[in-house]
Amino acid sequence: MTKALLVFQKAGEMGCWLGWTNLGDLYYYGEHVPKDYDKALEYYLKTRSGRINSEDKLAEIYFEKQEYNKVLPVLKQDYEERFAPIYYGIMYEMGLGVKVNNKKAIHYYEKAMLINNYPTAVQQLLVYYRKDSEYANEERFNYWLQYAEENEIEIDRIALGLEEPKKDSFFNRLFKP
């Protein structure tokens, strides 16, 4: 591993952006080296002058470091919207670097769900669409509730005003009324 680190470092110094990316990835994921977002950030920033795309990782690092003023420019570079919507949803909902705007949060949470399976987005969409909410929408609520059930996403049923599902015990299955 020591030799690999040296080779990646040398490759980066020689202009091979993949060397910096590999080093960034090692520290970002904490594989074979201690996880270190500061070191990962240092290497990922060196890749930006190349053509290697590490914006998703830069966004996460800045977000985790609560440097929201640095997250926003990175999100704006996500032209294909591969990762930005989930961050925008959270940021608009919580007012992190932007003004709180629940309509935008809902919009971005819905958009994020077209990209990936985000349990946080599902829970928040259910909160927004529940019947006692300003944004109540029974159809959307039922859609996301069914989605959560089909994808085995744990949701806070109490916060949503839902009953806990009945447990189907072995005894009850044997002696169905």
Rank of each mutant, 00 (worst) to 15 (best):
A159F: 11
K103G: 09
L75P: 02
G161C: 04
V74S: 10
V71M: 08
E110Y: 04
R82E: 10
E110I: 00
R140A: 05
A159G: 14
E110H: 02
Q66H: 01
V74F: 06
D132H: 13
N116V: 00
E110V: 05
L75S: 04
E149K: 12
N151A: 12
N116R: 06
N102T: 07
P85V: 01
K104P: 11
R140E: 11
Y129I: 10
H107T: 00
K111G: 07
I86Y: 15
R140M: 15
E81L: 14
Q77D: 15
V100M: 09
E154P: 05
Y129E: 12
A105M: 04
E154Q: 11
A59N: 06
V71I: 09
L126H: 06
E110R: 01
N69S: 11
K103L: 12
A148P: 04
K99F: 03
N102C: 12
E80V: 01
K103C: 08
I86E: 15
K70Q: 03
M91H: 01
A112R: 06
A59L: 12
L125Y: 01
R82Y: 07
E64S: 13
E138P: 07
Y128W: 04
G161P: 01
K57G: 12
A159D: 15
E150P: 02
E164A: 05
E93M: 14
T120R: 08
